[in-house]
């Protein structure tokens, strides 16, 4: 039943740190099992990866054509 939940899109492009991370962490708080967060960001968010690994969120990074990145995060 949870598989059809819509993706949560977080656009952190062009925001001053730490706002992008604040937004994506807020999205993780409401993330349901089976649901994903799609995080758009203009640079590699290395610090975010630390937090995702620490809390066992599986994630995948896709490099965009515009030099930005999309990080797809699933619930642990």
């Amino acid at each position: 039943m949870t598989l059809n939940l819509p993706e949560i899109v977080v656009d952190g492009r062009g925001l001053e740190p730490p706002e992008p991370m604040e937004r994506v962490l807020a999205a993780l708080d409401v993330l349901q099992p089976g649901q994903r967060v799609r995080f758009l960001i203009h640079r590699q968010p290395y610090p975010l990866y630390d937090i995702l690994r620490r809390y066992h969120y599986p994630y995948e990074t896709i490099k965009g054509v515009d030099g930005g990145f999309e990080i797809l995060i699933s619930a642990p």
Binding site: Y46, Y49, R54, H56
Partner: peptide
Amino acid sequence: MNPAGLSLEQAP
């Protein structure tokens, strides 16, 4: 706390 998870971290 998971020590194995910590060792993966980038940030010191």
